[in-house]
């Protein structure tokens, strides 16, 4: 599943809603769902900060086995570089999902988030 959004933060609600619905389909517990939503929001915002206003942000979601979910957020950015792993944003992303990676292909920067349903954490 893939959505293309104008590069403006006001449209991120669409990305969040889509990813939340996908997590719900995959039976994610609520805290994981909120984490993935926050991660997608963060990844999108990160790319937006380096994208021209008339650009496009693309969000692709691919559910895998056992509740695995890969979300790739990409945009043609000004620098055409992957985010620094020493940035705060990257630290945040790494904490929110199981795996984060980034790549560049002809000026198009992609951040890929891999999430899973997570362990059944004992709450009480």
């Amino acid at each position: 599943m893939r959505i293309e959004l104008p590069a403006a933060s006001g449209y991120l609600v669409l990305a969040r809603t889509a990813v939340a619905a996908m997590c719900a389909r995959l039976d994610y517990p609520l805290d994981r769902l909120e984490d993935v939503k926050l991660a997608v929001d963060e990844a999108c915002s990160l790319l937006l900060s380096d994208t021209d206003a008339d650009g496009t942000l693309s969000v692709a979601m691919a559910p895998g086995e056992d509740g695995q979910l890969n979300v790739a957020v990409s945009a043609v950015t000004r620098h055409g570089k992957t985010p620094k792993q020493s940035s705060f944003a990257w630290t945040v992303l790494s904490a929110l999902v199981e795996d984060v990676s980034a790549s560049v292909d002809a000026g198009q920067v992609s951040i890929t988030l891999s999430a899973s349903r997570g362990d059944s954490v004992v709450v009480s």
Binding site: T17, Y28, L30, R32, L33, E34, S124
Partner: peptide
Amino acid sequence: QKSGRSPTVAELAEALDLSEEEILEGLE
């Protein structure tokens, strides 16, 4: 409290007699 983990949207929808869509809207 009951299950020892965070509930899923489907579980919340069932418990509250709401649609999953409504739960998602509430969460957002």
